[in-house]
Design a binder for these strands. Structure first.
Lengths: 250, 250
DNA sequence: GTTTTTAATTGAACGATGTTCTATAAATGT
DNA sequence: ACATTTATAGAACATCGTTCAATTAAAAAC
């Protein structure tokens, strides 16, 4: 059972006769299910092609270029699941919560795929922002707009930013505020890496938010990091939004 | 510059004459520096051999078996750095803090290697315990013993366990304690996976600790998860130890 | 001092992988 | 009818992890 099943019709049926016409969507779906079944380490383009009963080159043709591109497609496809269960009739906070629950379920079901996502939550601050933008645009594609939502996500970005600051912050033993100039500068540099043309909203809102978190962090001695922030920030965020824009027409 | 530099002496000098005698330590060190330089994705056994001016088979001979074994060696070597800066003259809480700071520095410098460590902090609860045991034994190898340290690490295990519970817990929207039976059972099953013969201490202490965290979690509505717990738990832990065993002779 | 064993290394080989290339044929457009 | 686009096959290349039968220097045994 090698390449024999690939040419199941006659002898070397080249051209379009071999199949009805594979779809990019099908390729991505097959890739996801394969990774789901056998793990990311065991995943290979050749075996994906084998499972599809098709030559490896076909995948390149559909997905274009390299393995990274396929992963980008996978990422996009999975991220699409963030909109599951969204309904225009829901109140905005319910919708917001739904998106986050979807995310958690996603990471829970595809922990191996998670690092492939734009997220890369734990490693790179800038990538986190990209991910937030991805969610944001997913929401918008679903027809959900409004300043409240944008603000909400930017607050969350601040939470993620807090995680980054934690990683850049000096050791907890050092005096408060003493060495703060350097790492705050470092963080500012990270923020500066965000292209305002690509992410105008985020790049504009981030400095202010990170400032507030900075104060919160060093006044209370509490980390507003990603790890704790997921549920906490969500509540904080919804409450904050309620207080700030109680009748926001999203 | 292919395999030509591998036989730099004469023509095909086989046997022991070819080199003075490569060391397992040297192989591991070279591997680490290569991963450090070019990243984990670009790392290959063949290129490692090339960099060492040696045939690929040599690595197999020195490290034994497969790539995983090399990674295990790398893991062990890196974990050794956890003992950096430890001094018997230090008070125990300073030593404890030092180990954790070493860990953070380590993960910060080798983020790509982190998943190779026994840690796998974010993904697998049981693996977390292994990692704690690794640190514990590293401390013991450094001459640091005592029930307080063991207790300390077990409390931290509880913190990590809390992270797992968070992942297994029902959505925050659901009523407190209503569906708690099922996921607590799930968690108990995970604990049961720990071999008491390998990790007697941990497997004995964990159920009690996880219980306490469970209560803490659902009473206060606060997650004692890994993400927030790193600094927080460390303080909590040291304070707790001070109160519990103020004159503990470590 | 000769022989035997052990430690360390080589090069060749196998199968699998990512990727690119050319050939090919169906579908579509003109 | 002919030309172009679309979708495929298959061969090819370099690389990778891994194994294995030589090979030989050094150490140990005699």
């Amino acid at each position: 059972m090698m390449t024999d099943d690939a040419r199941k019709i006659g002898s070397s049926p080249r051209g379009r006769a071999a199949a009805i016409g594979l779809d990019k969507k099908q390729v991505v779906a097959a890739a996801i299910s394969q990774i789901d079944e056998k793990g990311l380490a065991a995943f290979s383009l050749r075996e994906l092609a084998r499972a599809l009963g098709v030559s490896p080159a076909v995948i390149y043709w559909h997905v274009g270029g390299a393995k990274e591109d396929l992963f980008a497609e996978i990422s996009a496809s999975i991220t699409g699941a963030l909109s599951d269960g969204l309904d225009a009739d829901m109140p905005w906070d319910v919708r917001l919560r739904q998106v986050f629950l979807n995310y958690r379920k996603l990471v829970h079901r595809h922990p191996e795929v998670a690092p492939l996502l734009g997220a890369q939550m734990q490693s790179n601050g800038v990538a986190n922002l990209d991910w937030v933008e991805t969610i944001l645009s997913a929401l918008q594609d679903g027809g959900y707009r409004g300043d409240a939502l944008r603000l909400a996500f930017n607050v969350l970005v601040g939470g993620l930013a807090g995680f980054v600051t934690m990683e850049l912050a000096p050791a907890p033993g050092s005096k408060r505020g003493s060495d703060s100039g350097s790492w705050q500068t470092l963080f500012a540099e990270r923020i500066a890496q965000i292209d305002p043309q690509v992410y105008p909203l985020t790049s504009r809102a981030l400095p202010d938010i990170s400032n507030r978190i900075f104060v919160l962090r060093w006044q209370n001695g509490v980390d507003v990091s990603y790890g704790d922030s997921f549920e906490l920030l969500l509540d904080l965020l919804i409450d904050g939004l309620r207080a700030r824009a109680p009748a926001d027409p999203i």
